[in-house]
């Protein structure tokens, strides 16, 4: 009898492992092992023909942090994230509220908002490159009408990062709007009427009913925007290549540069590990703290 029970238990356990295995294999192959390999690489010196790679401990990290570019690039990325995330969320929400209202040409408005999302980032960057072209671009053509001098938006350190930020917000807001639009359509119109009868105006309704009910969507969008603020660097290749003087260089672009332009893979690996660490901490914060405050239906 006991043998039979053991047999059944083992069968169940095997069944469980079989169910888990596809995900386990894929994650190990494409997420876990590269992470470990990267970490391993970050602990070794750069190998050349004369001097093969050797274990160097935290040297790569020390070098990295000592590099003046590190502070610039991290600062750039913090500013980039700090502006693009809230800006694209707020604009997406505003557009969704507008596109959800009963307005004429609603389909056209929604389509217009969504168009940037459908473009590949490289194509969008090329369009904006034309907008930003000093003297000839759309922006200078418009400002020229008012007699303002042409500005090299992408070519000067003070404006380069902001020009990149504008492109990112323009690209992302439409995408996030779709999520807000979907969420708004699940909110019954009765709630607005009930709030109106109870004396809540448009602003009170938005603040006390609409926004709380949209919090799950906002959390989802926030995470997406956060990920994009680290991983979305396609447009940098077209617009600025991180310049001038590192003014618009973001972390991942820097990693790419170190690994494939300067062939310093260990330092790139060290930087990657740091990025993973920060993202991991944010994920923990999200699950532990934010999720408790959000009402999921």
């Amino acid at each position: 009898m006991e043998q039979l029970a053991t047999y059944h238990r083992r069968r169940q356990a095997l069944y469980g492992w079989l169910l888990v295995s596809p995900a386990l294999i894929l994650l190990t192959l494409f997420a876990l092992s590269p992470t470990v390999a990267t970490f391993w690489a970050s602990l070794h010196s750069r190998g050349t023909i004369r001097r093969p790679s050797a274990f160097s401990g935290w040297d790569n990290y020390a070098d990295l942090i000592a590099d003046p570019s590190f502070a610039t690039v991290v600062g750039n990325n913090l500013l980039y994230a700090g502006v693009t995330i809230p800006a694209s969320i707020v604009i997406a929400l505003a557009m969704a509220l507008w596109a959800n209202a009963k307005i004429p040409l609603r389909g056209v408005v929604r389509g217009a908002f969504f168009t940037p999302t459908m473009l590949p980032m490289i194509a969008a960057a090329n369009i904006w490159l034309f907008f930003y072209t000093p003297g000839l671009g759309v922006i200078d053509a418009v400002t020229g009408l008012f007699g303002l001098p042409p500005v090299n938006w992408l070519g000067q350190p003070q404006t380069a990062l902001w020009a990149v930020i504008v492109v990112t917000v323009w690209k992302e807001a439409g995408f996030f709007m779709i999520f807000y639009l979907a969420a708004l359509q699940t909110i019954p119109p009765d709630l607005r009427e009930a709030a109106a009868v109870e004396g809540a105006g448009r602003i009170t309704y938005t603040r006390r009913v609409l926004l709380p009910l949209l919090m799950p969507t906002t959390a989802f969008i926030f995470i997406n925007a956060l990920i994009n603020s680290v991983k979305l660097i396609d447009h940098l290749f077209i617009l600025t290549k991180g310049g001038p003087n590192n003014a618009s260089k973001l972390v991942l672009y820097w990693v790419w540069e170190m690994a494939f332009a300067y062939f310093d893979a260990p330092r790139a690996a060290a930087m990657t590990v740091l990025v993973l660490l920060v993202l991991g901490l944010i994920a923990v914060f999200q699950f532990r703290v934010l999720d408790r405050r959000i009402h999921y239906r």
Binding site: P188, L191, E193, A194, A196, V197, A200, G201, V209, L213
Partner: peptide, 16 residues
């Protein structure tokens, strides 16, 4: 509605 001094019960209850 708020100025009319009334309250309302909705078919769906419209609870938040």
């Amino acid at each position: 509605p708020a100025a009319r001094g009334l309250s309302m019960v909705f078919q769906s209850y419209a609870l938040f």
